[in-house]
Design a protein around this nucleic acid. Sequence first.
DNA 1: GTCTATAAATAGATAGAC
DNA 2: GTCTATCTATTTATAGAC
Lengths: 202, 202
Amino acid sequence: MPSKRPYHHGNLAAELIEASFGLLAEQGLAEFSVAKVARALGVSTASPYRHFADRDHLLGAVAAQAARELADRMRADAAAAGADAGEAFAATAGTYVRYVAERGAGFDVIFSPTLTAVQSGGLAEGRRALMDLLFDLAHATGLAPTREDAFVLLERHLVAAHGYVSLFDGGFFTNRNPTASSIADRATQATRTLLAGAGAGG
Amino acid sequence: MPSKRPYHHGNLAAELIEASFGLLAEQGLAEFSVAKVARALGVSTASPYRHFADRDHLLGAVAAQAARELADRMRADAAAAGADAGEAFAATAGTYVRYVAERGAGFDVIFSPTLTAVQSGGLAEGRRALMDLLFDLAHATGLAPTREDAFVLLERHLVAAHGYVSLFDGGFFTNRNPTASSIADRATQATRTLLAGAGAGG
DNA sequence: GTCTATAAATAGATAGAC
DNA sequence: GTCTATCTATTTATAGAC
């Protein structure tokens, strides 16, 4: 058994991104390291630097892909929620919770200021497409007449969804059945309440 | 100039806790280290270990103090908000945002699972007193008839407040005047909307 | 109680062989 | 394009002098 690394690579760059999602999902952004990603793939810790200039460029590529994946899933879930625009909008809260539980890369990764300077892999475009989609869904509810109203509604919606994820990951929910699925449902319901409050003039 | 450290200590343990707050406020939990805290005080990196068994025991003492400080401020702000129970409850969202902006220790620190095992400095009691206070304020609004309703309302309130803090710290708000004070106001208003939604049956 | 010195991990990143 | 080897920096924590 030659312990020489037997790994063949067709596309190490893509594998590094995928392994990064796995590490983020399991250990979170704080525990992310290029060395761990390399070890997870069985390659040397030097290999990633042939494909990404530094740690932030790898994370930037992950963030860009996360923005695209998240937008795709939100679009699909909103469409599946039916004709009610409020329900379509609220559904994306659940999409967000489930996506971060599975992939580990949420708004903290996608909109990380340290990655803004990097601009790798279409990060700026991915960010904008994601926000445009959500803004359109917020506007379509009809509960935010002006552009500013839609911004406020969208902000509260994202804050609630991310708040659930952040407190869930932080171990805040120790009782009340804290599965990712139940948290996703609670986030969706929180946005429904925000919509009811907006409708009631709150 | 003898570079021998000239520092005298009446109470290094308390100074370490206070310096930890400063570090958390400036750099966040991810960047927290015992070594940095020691350097900020001009003492050797070994000194903290005479007062705290390890990193988690120092952070546990910080978390316990944060829980007490936060509860005190919330109680005061709720009282100052006037007779309306909904306004008193909503005010604590702003309290939370301002407190974390100033002290750096929010729910992520106070309820960190790694600190639960430590049980230093009355952390368990501080956590419970904080949650009891908030539950009472939620119940007093009259918009949550049952105990379970009050839990749900409280959960959404905290999720929104923490979501604002988390996204604010994460650099999500790059426009729309992102000062801590304006974020605090937006968090307070978000809870008002949740109350309106609860009142409207959302 | 505080210091100096040190040990053991771990990470980011680079040089040069193959 | 991947490897081995190495350098530098940082952190957590301990040993032992003062």
